[in-house]
Nucleic acid binder design. Structure first.
Lengths: 344, 344
DNA sequence: CTTACCGATGATAGCGATAACATATCCGGC
DNA sequence: GCCGGATATGTTATCGCTATCATCGGTAAG
């Protein structure tokens, strides 16, 4: 509705209004608005002018009802305030560029219940595909997704029983690699800092990897501080490292569920006059910007967040367009690597 | 579409399918799916069962075409990987809870051109209102928004010439306050670190506030390092402070366009063995989590990011529901305050 | 007992676009 | 001059849902 000078609101112009003004049929307007249709230059210009004069904006919801293509895909991430996931979102956006598909972003605050609600309200809008974070979902969410008949990509994880397709890595294996790398440098007394169990499944898997690797190396794997509701904050990381040193003062290296808690731990240790890594070594997970920039610079695991998003979106568009002959592989594993810096 | 056992895809069930199965008319199903309509308990239950058996999901795009209510509002923020803006998004989400409105989030990467595209593609989906960040938009974007006939809220700023309504604060005044507070503590030689001009208008306004306040105090206001494309990173903040100390070694306090660049500067100074604040004081802007947690803890300006989102969403819903008699005030100013910590 | 009204349901007609088919025009080649 | 095929445009029929009005018992007020 545009406000008319008298203050009342007039109806928004429709395609028919544009058509009438340009002296053509609505169908021709529709064609002129779409790439690659045959509309003569003169007509196209007249239509463009009419659109301009009326301030017409295409109503896509009407269009998609008719064409049965909504032109968007949904992506659900745990948090938008987390550069790892927002990098994934950027990867998705970039890969969608030029496909005519738009991204509809939602965030769950790490709650599978919120995820379920979000999935439901997104499916109501009929996305052409959906990208999820992680492999843990409510039963109802799984059912809804299976019945939706659209491609589903689970990311950031390697679920046992994927709904459809997967782009991710094993969080457990990544943490195992970190433990092994540090053990090879001579560290023996490892501690782990993470949130209380539940909610953050990727965090739980990292913890499980920590335990597995140490057990394999016959090193103690019981120095685990569970603190705060996942995802734990920087502040909580600081508090957790204090508890850890309280309880096991001879801990040599503290591995944290993410760089953010590791950063909190690192700063707290510095604040207490401890030398890092001499008095205590610290490592994180995720290779956030902060890890490369803090002092001392932090050892961490780099995972290809942007690439996860990019590949997920590519897989999704291929699945959407793909005929049955053009099969898309089910699982794509993305890489990770240990980035050794000054903190270990 | 649900995949049938033979691999072919069947059409997704529609409301009519549900109605037939439940032995009622489609209209009754529609009513049963809406709160507060008169449908008998027995009928409601039969419908619920039919929905369950068929795995039916309401098609909202069809519904909104008919009801002329899409049930969502759009919000456009510069970056999702910035806790200030994601706090605003969270404020919006929370305030929208229970209103039946959903949030459609988009991000511009600080580009007004991207913003224009985004606004256009969002308007095509007919949001019931739109929340923008900042007051700088392309002419075409302004025109589209004015003609859309929906409430528009500009946030995080106090534009001279608002499109519709505003929830924000003066970035310039906030920076002036910070300068004054530090000058009162005795600091005289101030430096400023920000991105090269353009793009980040809030950053430019902070810089302008910096200059204004120092001029008023008759202190030198020319120690300005412009470095990198806004928003500047932590790393760039570190590089910038090095240039600053190179050029004006006797600088007493470095003010940064955001906590992130301030953090980079802080860490770089520590890395070079400087004492903060004794050798150089540092302050940021935004009161990010990192400011309270780093060592030394950082002085900064706290702005009520969450409140901005909350109030913007409240204003928006009031404008959407509001009759003309129920006028909504045009401008809401949100507060800010200096948070003094160890770094100054 | 009649009137009025409310609650429960159905029938019908769009919402604003596009798919699919139909029609008209123009072109060059024979 | 006629024909096939491309280009340009129009007509008609939905897409899946909800607004609106109509219908029909039942029930309370007069």
């Amino acid at each position: 509705m545009t406000k008319t000078p008298d203050g009342k609101s007039a109806e928004a112009p429709t395609m028919n209004d544009v058509a009438r003004r340009a002296g053509v049929s609505a169908m021709t307007v529709s064609r002129a608005l779409k790439e690659g249709s045959h509309v003569s230059k003169a007509t196209r210009e007249r239509i463009a002018q009419a659109i301009n004069e009326l301030g017409y904006v295409l109503d896509q919801s009407a269009g998609s009802l008719s064409s049965r293509r909504t032109g968007f895909v949904a992506a659900i991430i745990p948090s938008i305030n987390n550069s790892n996931f927002s990098d994934t979102a950027r990867g998705i956006t970039d890969a969608l560029e030029g496909t005519g598909l738009q991204l509809l972003l939602g965030y769950t605050d790490y709650s599978v219940e919120r995820e379920e609600e979000l999935i439901e309200s997104m499916l109501r809008r009929r996305p052409e595909g959906i990208i999820l974070t992680g492999g843990a979902h409510t039963d109802r969410a799984r059912r809804m997704l299976q019945q939706a008949g659209i491609p589903v990509i689970e990311t950031w994880d390697t679920p046992q029983d994927p709904i459809d397709k997967v782009v991710g890595f094993s969080n457990g294996a990544a943490m195992e690699l970190l433990v092994e790398t540090l053990a090879a440098k001579g560290y023996q007394r490892f501690g782990y800092i993470g949130g209380t169990t539940g909610r953050d499944t990727r965090g739980s898997q990292r913890r499980a990897g920590f335990v597995r690797a140490l057990d394999r190396l016959s090193l103690p794997s019981d120095r685990i501080i569970s603190f705060g509701v996942p995802p734990i904050s920087m502040e909580q990381g600081g508090q957790a490292v204090v508890s850890m040193l309280d309880r096991w003062p001879d801990t040599q290296v503290a591995l944290c569920v993410s760089d953010l808690s590791a950063f909190g731990a690192l700063m707290e240790c510095r604040r207490r006059g401890m030398r890092v890594p001499e008095d205590i070594a610290i490592a994180g997970f995720g290779d956030y910007e902060i890890a490369a920039c803090c002092h001392p610079r932090m050892t961490t695991i780099n995972v290809d967040c942007y690439g996860i998003g990019r590949q997920a979106a590519l897989k999704l568009t291929r699945s959407i367009q793909g005929t049955s002959s053009d099969e898309v592989e089910q699982i794509t594993l993305t890489g990770f690597r240990v980035v050794e810096r000054e903190s270990t």
